[in-house]
Design a protein around this nucleic acid. Sequence first.
DNA 1: AATGAATGAGTATTCATTCAT
DNA 2: GATGAATGAATACTCATTCAT
Lengths: 171, 171, 171, 171
Amino acid sequence: MFARQGYHQTSISDIVSSQKVAKGVFYWYFSSKEDLFSEILKEAVAGLRRSQAEAIAGITDPLARIAAGIEASLRYVGRNKAMFAIFEQALGAPQFEEVVRSGHKKLISDTVRHLQEGMEQGRIRRGDPEIIAHEIFGTMTYVARFLLPSGSPDDKIIAETVRYCVNAIAS
Amino acid sequence: MFARQGYHQTSISDIVSSQKVAKGVFYWYFSSKEDLFSEILKEAVAGLRRSQAEAIAGITDPLARIAAGIEASLRYVGRNKAMFAIFEQALGAPQFEEVVRSGHKKLISDTVRHLQEGMEQGRIRRGDPEIIAHEIFGTMTYVARFLLPSGSPDDKIIAETVRYCVNAIAS
Amino acid sequence: MFARQGYHQTSISDIVSSQKVAKGVFYWYFSSKEDLFSEILKEAVAGLRRSQAEAIAGITDPLARIAAGIEASLRYVGRNKAMFAIFEQALGAPQFEEVVRSGHKKLISDTVRHLQEGMEQGRIRRGDPEIIAHEIFGTMTYVARFLLPSGSPDDKIIAETVRYCVNAIAS
Amino acid sequence: MFARQGYHQTSISDIVSSQKVAKGVFYWYFSSKEDLFSEILKEAVAGLRRSQAEAIAGITDPLARIAAGIEASLRYVGRNKAMFAIFEQALGAPQFEEVVRSGHKKLISDTVRHLQEGMEQGRIRRGDPEIIAHEIFGTMTYVARFLLPSGSPDDKIIAETVRYCVNAIAS
DNA sequence: AATGAATGAGTATTCATTCAT
DNA sequence: GATGAATGAATACTCATTCAT
């Protein structure tokens, strides 16, 4: 509901009545509306990291790992569009700044590690890995936001995006 | 104020009292809170396009035009962080979907034109220009969102980002 | 309404609908329910002090001033039973401790002044004026609380109370 | 907890968790929150009467009995400040009017008996014993409320209060 | 006897918007 | 053009109470 209607447009009333439970139950499990939203946010980040980790398991080449990570991420987001929409809402809201920052840091530092390794091995061009990680992340995010919901086949979009990022960073 | 506190955390009261005028004045100039926000949004998009247009004026090589556009955009966003923060808030809110979509379409189609020209001239690798335009946009956006507010010098970040995008699309 | 139904049993809704105004008006004039209650409290104390001051104006004998003050207070409370009931509710409530304390201090110190003067002139027996002031106050308060609302004629009660206090403190 | 935080600020949750039992237990022993509060109230009145009865046992002079009763009451309240605070909260609340009234009636009629006897024996000045009993009660109550919690030594306050009341009613 | 999850009515407060002056 | 008092729908959150286990 947060994804569909937005955080502010979704009332606790909406939430509990959609689950056919009384209002009190909500507060038995969550301390506030913000709390629920944060939980979803954290779960979204955790899920994304899990699917990235699975995808790169066993791949030794750092550049290939990054490519696999991008593909896995886009597929994950494709399957969990609601979670992604929620993430987006959190971006602009001061009250979720902290959760967003912390999620980001984790995701970025995962990528930074592969980038550093790749640079050392000469597979990835030299540069500030922190900046490059953000660039990759941004590429993925926008594609996910504006293209995956559209009609065009995901596979084509995903392949193009992987190619874009690999070109951008390969040495 | 929208940028600093968020759309919902900013009340009409806050706005008018910061300008030392009465509430009625607000409704003399804007039909609603949403209207004001949309105006700011449209102005942000227009400003970004203007600075892109200025930057690429006189450049004939399409790839160079894109590079110049990216640099100009990042500089513009760096100078107008508040506007950017507002844009971000609009992304997650259903009520601004339309304005966002329309702004995006304009920005994307500006880039698509250069990409198509570049592909025809062999300066830019073949691919779906629509997808590539989104990729470029996403790269810029994330960098703007997460790196420009940080302490590190903008020039370094901008140079790295231009390089990233050019590598990604050059043939 | 606070006096009749109690602070917690009186909702903002009750208050505004009794005045046939919308809920928002309440918050235009008072910042909260607590604020309204505090205002009433302060007004009650101010009114009591005013009627005491009027009653003792021109009386030179300190003991007579105290007697006149007691009579005036009881008559005031008799005329403003609602205000008194409100004061009583504030006594037990932690959130009004401060207002109560400050009101009390004023009323007590008014009396303390007369007591000291009376002791110096030998009209009033020696003793801790602070304690005696509380004793007088308590006498009045309980009488007001439990006897004035009853059927019996006020004059008799008031006369008896004045006599009680005067006996208690005269030298 | 009622004394410290107030009746409304104390939830059943607070109560049961402070005792490390589940909510259900509360309703096994008490039928409602009001019920618990009333029980405490009644117990407070009973305790006060018990300590008065003990104090006056064996004293034949009615005036001395009253003096002993006042001293015993103040000492009891000094030892049971929480109970007293609870009594005070009940004063303003319509839902406890009945319990308060009934407690009062008992305490007042105890005193009235001694007063009548004292008047017959010429030890106590003539007057309406009902009114005088309230006056005595009020004196004690306010002293208890505002002076006993303060730092000053209880003995001095108690002695002064006994003197005040005895002066007030002695013939 | 005891647990604690579930209920749902109740309530203070906010705020976009209007409109008589 | 401007004021600011008034409107009232909307909403997060609390908490006494119940009851299946």
